[in-house]
């Protein structure tokens, strides 16, 4: 029997401690992982774009290749690499527990970074290719070094690409599901409420579909608000 409950499920969402702590966890994850990933992506893109580096075609493909691996497969692969007994590097994994409660979030961050860094690099790289070569010529005539060109010309001109990849990454972070879920079969440290989407998933399996649906709406709104805020903040900065 179903009755119209008005906003009762939404009230329940806001009272649900596990849901909010999972949001807190992915926000922490995003605050650390997104800048690192985009930083690496930017450095790789600048290196590819630099006239000093040979074999840029090969490296471009090599860096991008992990993105072709489905994220579930990537998580399984890394899960085995991290696992204390099944890893090919047991010498490392038996002394450092990558899958402990304290480390597992950052081990997952590493997987996500590995998969997406090439993708973000490619977006930034294509923005670099769109910079007209006259600007570089002018800079070189003024005696600017490659480093100086990168810092003063390339980076400011690819900021829109960085904002775009940043927004994509924030959305991806809030929706983290596949990697932690796969990691549940490698470690006990990933609980059923580890990320917001896992919380929704396990709530739906209770089954409490109404509450899970309300959580999904709240998560979607939160994602929207966060992306929009980041967009506004960065636009104001670039305008100023």
């Amino acid at each position: 029997m179903q009755v119209f409950g008005g906003f009762t499920q939404y009230v329940a969402v806001f009272e649900n401690e596990a849901f909010w702590s999972s949001i807190g966890r992915v926000l922490l994850f995003g605050a650390v992982q997104v800048p690192i990933m985009l930083g690496i992506a930017l450095i790789l893109a600048l290196l590819l774009d630099s006239p000093l580096v040979r074999g840029s075609k090969f490296f471009r493909l090599a860096f991008f290749a992990p993105y072709a691996v489905p994220s579930v497969i990537a998580a399984i692969m890394w899960g085995f690499l991290y696992s204390p007994n099944l890893s090919p590097f047991t010498g490392v994994t038996q002394s450092v527990d990558f899958l402990s409660a304290g480390n597992v979030l950052w081990s997952i961050a590493n997987v996500v970074t590995w998969v997406y860094v090439g993708y973000n690099m490619l977006i930034i790289y294509s923005a670099l290719l769109a910079i007209p070569s006259e600007i570089y010529e002018a800079a070189r005539l003024d005696g600017a070094s490659q480093l100086r060109i990168a810092w003063s010309i390339k980076i400011p001109l690819v900021v829109p690409a960085l904002v775009l990849t940043g927004i994509f990454s924030i959305i991806g972070t809030l929706q983290l599901l596949a990697e932690p879920q796969v990691f549940q079969s490698f470690t006990s440290a990933v609980t059923s409420t580890f990320t917001p989407n896992l919380t929704i998933y396990s709530t739906a399996s209770v089954p409490n579909i109404s509450l899970a649906a309300a959580m999904s709406v709240v998560l979607a709104l939160a994602t929207f608000v966060l992306s929009f805020t980041v967009l506004k903040l960065t636009q104001r900065r670039t305008a100023a």
């Binding site: 179903q2 009755v3 409950g5 499920q9 409490n208 109404s210």
Partner: peptide
């Protein structure tokens, strides 16, 4: 539509 969908609380 999303609100309406989730407004049904399972009762009874």
């Amino acid at each position: 539509a999303a609100l309406a969908l989730t407004a049904c609380s399972t009762g009874g």
